[in-house]
């Protein structure tokens, strides 16, 4: 069965990009443009991995992460932070990786592959 990745980012162009990239490489994707939508989506289709933007309208990425980890089903899902903010390494300390925009897609795919295969 295909692995499922949830993309949380407020920029539709970037969601589109990540969606195409992951789909092309054999993953299934869901997407959300803010923390609230992301949480709903994660509860509906439990993802195998989440990519998360930090700065979004409404609730920011860290808040989403806290809420996600309060859900027993979701709390061990690996998270990759993809953000334009510099120095965000500690925004979500438990993230398995923190990638800065604009990112190297090969590297991102490598990290994803290492995490969920």
């Amino acid at each position: 069965m295909k692995k499922r990745i949830l993309i949380v980012d407020d920029d539709p162009n970037i969601v589109d990009y990540l969606d195409a990239l992951f789909t092309d490489n054999g993953y299934e994707t869901d997407s959300a443009r803010d923390a609230k939508e992301g949480l709903e989506m994660a509860k509906k289709n439990t993802p195998d991995l989440v990519t998360l933007d930090i700065e979004m309208p409404g609730e920011w990425g860290p808040r989403f992460y806290r809420q996600m980890t309060q859900d027993a089903k979701l709390k061990n899902v690996p998270v990759i932070v993809i953000s334009g903010l510099s120095g965000n390494t500690y925004a979500i300390p438990k993230a398995i990786a923190s990638i800065k925009k604009p990112f190297d897609r090969e590297k991102l795919l490598e990290i994803v592959k290492d995490a969920i295969g």
Binding site: I14, Y17, A20, K101, P102
Partner: peptide, 29 residues
């Protein structure tokens, strides 16, 4: 700088899809 980074990422995305779209001969993409 944050806005610029977002735009550059989106541009990367466009180029990626253009590239793969041409490879797969997917006109819509």
């Amino acid at each position: 700088s944050h806005g610029v980074k977002g735009m550059l990422t989106a541009l990367d995305g466009g180029i990626y899809q253009l590239e793969t779209g041409l490879k797969q001969a997917d006109g819509t993409r």
